[in-house]
């Protein structure tokens, strides 16, 4: 009996350790009156150098701008790759009276659709998608990732010597797909003979396979790599190991991962959108609209890596592409 008890205790200890660490870590809290409160649920870690981090950085930037924790309280749940867990977190935050609950993942749509009607005073924002389900308290948001993809494509096409470019990603959906579609259009606008080959690994978390996919591209002759999503860090690792392969990033400025190899990154900047949603919420409009990050509205930016010596004429071509897209003279199809 005693033995059983010990075993049970050991497991309880293990479970407690396991469950408390990856999720629901609290950001510093403070609770004076009239503090605006935002909670965000994310599929990966806030330090993923990509999708989740782009949102978290934006929220922190808005917090600083508004005057710190007393003005804006932030809470997050990260690593919510299981949708039922995420749904539970969304409901929890809503019932705790947060003003805005952001469900930062396209897989959370059905959860938002189910939960939002139960909390008419709470604003729900989710993305990336365009569907607000016709609900008055739901905002949808997405990024026109094809625009930055086009710009990166133009730059890449001018830099490649082997005329072979490799693309890696987890699954062929969402902004991963639109980014790459834009990238291919950008490449083709410069030189239609360049070969862009793509691999999908089927897993958001299998870094080993992602790295091997990148190494495969390099072995097949690629001298430029790009790709989307969280586990893209593995590809940067492969590029770094090779030493002469260049990288184009998206979602977040990835220059710090490989300062010599990253040429430019498309950066998602959610700050403008967040500020607008806060303002609308305070004005009484709790939802019903869709935001799209674009080069035009400043939601998308191209971050050139200052550590990489980009030839002037190439940079000029990139900047011209940005201008043309902003002006609408170039239309990139998602």
């Amino acid at each position: 009996m005693f033995k059983r008890l010990i075993v049970v205790l050991v497991f309880v200890a293990i479970l407690v350790t396991a469950c408390t660490s990856p999720t629901a870590t609290e950001a510093p809290t403070a609770a004076p009156v009239k503090t605006f409160r935002i909670a965000v649920i994310m599929p990966s870690a806030i330090t993923d150098m990509a999708f989740s981090q782009s949102m978290w950085n934006a929220l922190v930037a808005v917090q600083t701008e508004m005057g710190g924790e007393t003005a804006l309280e932030l809470k997050y749940s990260e690593g919510m790759f299981k949708v039922p867990d995420a749904a539970a977190a969304i409901r929890d935050y809503a019932s705790q009276g947060f003003d805005i609950v952001i469900a930062h993942g396209s897989q959370y749509g059905s959860s938002v659709q189910e939960i939002a009607p139960d909390f008419p005073d709470v604003t729900f924002a989710w993305g990336t998608d365009v569907n607000t389900f016709g609900m008055p308290n739901v905002y949808a948001y997405t990024a026109a990732a094809e625009e930055g993809g086009y710009v990166n494509g133009v730059l890449a096409a001018m830099l490649t010597k082997s005329k072979t470019i490799g693309v890696t990603g987890p699954v062929e959906v969402g902004d991963a797909k639109t980014y790459i579609d834009g990238f291919v259009q950008g490449v083709e606008s410069v030189d239609a003979t360049i070969n862009v080959s793509k691999t999908w690994t089927g897993s958001f978390s299998d870094v080993a396979l992602m790295t091997e996919a990148a190494k495969t591209h390099i072995a097949a002759g690629a001298d430029i790599l790009t790709g989307s999503s969280q586990s893209v860090v593995g590809s940067i690792g492969a590029a770094k190991e090779n030493g002469s392969v260049l990288w184009f990033g998206t979602q977040q400025d990835q220059a710090s991962l490989a300062p010599d190899l990253v040429v430019a990154s498309q950066v998602y900047d959610w700050t403008g959108m967040i500020k607008e949603i806060i303002a609308k919420h305070l004005a009484g409009t709790l939802g019903g609209e869709t935001y799209i990050l674009q080069l035009k509205n400043g939601g998308l930016k191209i971050a050139f890596n200052p550590g990489y010596a980009l030839p002037a004429e190439v940079k000029a071509a990139g900047e011209k592409a940005i201008e043309d897209i902003t002006a609408g003279t170039i239309v990139v199809n998602p």
């Binding site: 293990i14 350790t17 396991a18 408390t20 660490s21 330090t47 993923d48 150098m49 860090v233 991962l257």
Partner: peptide, 18 residues
């Protein structure tokens, strides 16, 4: 689960980012 939790926790507290 212990290994998964502990490695994530240590990663976040000692390294933090990629």
């Amino acid at each position: 689960m212990f290994g998964l939790g502990l490695s994530s926790l240590l990663f976040k507290t000692t390294i933090g980012t990629v």
